[in-house]
């Protein structure tokens, strides 16, 4: 069953998946962290209490989290054409991937930042820190370990999302498994793509755990 595996296609698909997941993980962190910070600092009793901001951000985040990913993909491929000039291939797939994962990660960031000891924030305020300094020098460094392990979870989710996005035109291992495996009755291709995805997840988890442990000083 494994003699009909087209390794060239497999490696290309693996590269596409790594590319999609890498780019979208980066942008997920880039958007998710500020959103998570906003969700925390604008809440009642926090350092920048602004209820309307809190409500607005929370609503947007919830809407994106409520829409099933596959629907998000169908909605956002046209947007991808507008943003990155194409609605096909791995680059286009990053748009719905980021839109799906950033709100998810924002909630993880929110939880991680809320875990930071309020006493430490109070201490920083008592020393004359600005709000911005509190966020950059207290909240984020104190929560780094949790932020990394949260990003690991998000990245793993992105790998599985990328397989879905692949089927509707994104390319990558999901697409290869579907077209060259499932539709071509080639079980070898199907299984190989699956195994590679599992290995990717393991690798990401392993790297994430290692960094998270290194940064945990508690």
């Amino acid at each position: 069953m494994f003699n009909e595996i087209d390794w060239a296609t497999i490696w290309q698909a693996t590269g596409e998946t790594a590319y999609m997941v890498g780019i979208s993980t980066f942008f997920t962190a880039l958007f998710g962290v500020p959103l998570g910070i906003l969700l925390v600092v604008t809440d009642t009793g926090q350092i920048w209490e602004k209820h309307w901001v809190q409500k607005a951000v929370a609503t947007v985040v919830n809407i994106f989290r409520a829409v099933p990913f596959i629907i998000l993909v169908l909605f956002l491929f046209p947007l991808a054409k507008f943003l990155v000039g194409t609605s096909l291939g791995p680059t286009a797939a990053t748009i719905p991937l980021i839109a799906g994962a950033a709100p998810f990660y924002a909630r993880i960031v929110e939880t991680a930042l809320r875990e930071v000891d309020k006493g430490v924030v109070e201490a920083a305020r008592s020393m004359g820190s600005t709000r911005f300094q509190v966020v950059v020098n207290v909240l984020l460094p104190e929560a780094t370990s949790a932020l990394i392990s949260g990003l690991t979870v998000t990245c793993v989710t992105l790998i599985s999302f990328s397989a879905m996005a692949g089927v509707v035109g994104g390319g990558g291992l999901g697409d290869a498994a579907f077209r060259f495996g499932f539709q071509s009755f080639n079980d070898g291709m199907l299984v190989t793509c699956g195994v590679l995805l599992v290995m990717m997840v393991q690798l990401v988890q392993w790297i994430g755990d290692w960094f998270s442990r290194q940064l945990d000083k508690r």
Partner: peptide
């Protein structure tokens, strides 16, 4: 004004992610 009013706490409220040295440096950095 707060920089000229020090405060210490029952539960110390040190930054767990910073060394002793960096904790003491914190208010000076700020």
């Amino acid at each position: 004004a707060r920089q000229k009013i020090g405060m210490i706490f029952q539960h110390f409220n040190l930054l767990q992610s910073r060394t002793v040295w960096k904790n003491v440096a914190f208010p000076l950095e700020m």
